[in-house]
Design a protein around this nucleic acid. Sequence first.
DNA 1: CAAATAAGAAACTAAAAGTATCTTAGTGAC
DNA 2: GTCACTAAGATACTTTTAGTTTCTTATTTG
Lengths: 202, 202
Amino acid sequence: MTQTRRRGADLEQAVYQATREILNTEGLSQLTFAKVAAKAQTSKPVIYRHWETPFSLALLAIQDKIKADNHGQLDQVVLTGESLAADLLLVTQRFTASMDAFGKTFMESWFEGVSHDDSAQLKQMLAKVRKIDLNAIDRVLERAVTRGELTGTDLPEKLKLLPFEWLRYRMLAKESIGSAELRLLVDDILVPTYLHRLGPKN
Amino acid sequence: MTQTRRRGADLEQAVYQATREILNTEGLSQLTFAKVAAKAQTSKPVIYRHWETPFSLALLAIQDKIKADNHGQLDQVVLTGESLAADLLLVTQRFTASMDAFGKTFMESWFEGVSHDDSAQLKQMLAKVRKIDLNAIDRVLERAVTRGELTGTDLPEKLKLLPFEWLRYRMLAKESIGSAELRLLVDDILVPTYLHRLGPKN
DNA sequence: CAAATAAGAAACTAAAAGTATCTTAGTGAC
DNA sequence: GTCACTAAGATACTTTTAGTTTCTTATTTG
């Protein structure tokens, strides 16, 4: 009987597929060459011959997926909005949608492989931090009200947390955070945003 | 001779200290009980008796540090600004400063333990994504200019990338992203921000 | 000072990562 | 079609690392 034996691009595809499945279900920390080989129905040496590390395999598997379903290069969205706001909504919607291919697999991976207990502890910790962040902003807003710059402190929490979340992201991505970034954040983002909601001449 | 042998809080401190050193130099993925034991000059069984997993040890070690140097509970900043912008700058400055204790150790950890090659590959990938994001926004801005909503498309890249970075953070932190969040982002953050810089009646 | 408790050393077990060897299927040249 | 070459896949092996066990002894507590 003719024992079929995959090779080349064929095999590569099977490996990438298997890799993504593991990433989605167990996360990056659980991605091992042995598991990939098993799931792709091949053997360890094959994987070791072709790829350096589980991490680089993960990157390639995700890039492969992105290439494959070109489902929404973000800059190819057809813009049909009748206003800036409408167009922006289209773009951000498409962005979150296509994050399923890239971001979800890719970013969540980092946090998978953390036990249930640990995850709970982490959540609790983040909740504590969030409360502190909110307090800090509230005090700033109250002072602004006293000064007459704002008419109230009633902002959605998401808005109040925006600066911290943005800065945390930049830290994570190792983007620079200096006085230039902070000024931009305050003068061009936060103040206009707050004034838009709570400005005196609304 | 009296062989000193640490125990209790004393030992705990040494272990936390060692844990943080490893986190800072090698990252979470390289944090093992064996290494901690070695660096803290104790033995594996001691660590195994006290802590569940390297991850939970990491969390505790960081929390310990935060408690120890109370250097700047964010909501205890003394606000001395004479304007909303000035106060906000104080808060964000303090935030980034105290990130050294929490965030830097904590967040960067996720990406450490990735080989040099892998790290480069990752960077390249993110750069590609950034370019796509910028293109998308540029097209939106150009349409807005044609429509007369904006006077130009000359925005700092950081501003253009804001929505994507914010959404990515929320994804990472497993915060919800639905139409409510997107509307908030567009109507209350992006549009006011863009108008502030490029609005027609400036 | 005696008893209880917990630290530390060392050796051990189990499991996982990584490697070497060999057989054989698929590919292409002649 | 045959032959040579390349790469897949099986198997068994070595090495490393995680996790455990046992035992000794320093330190605390009463």
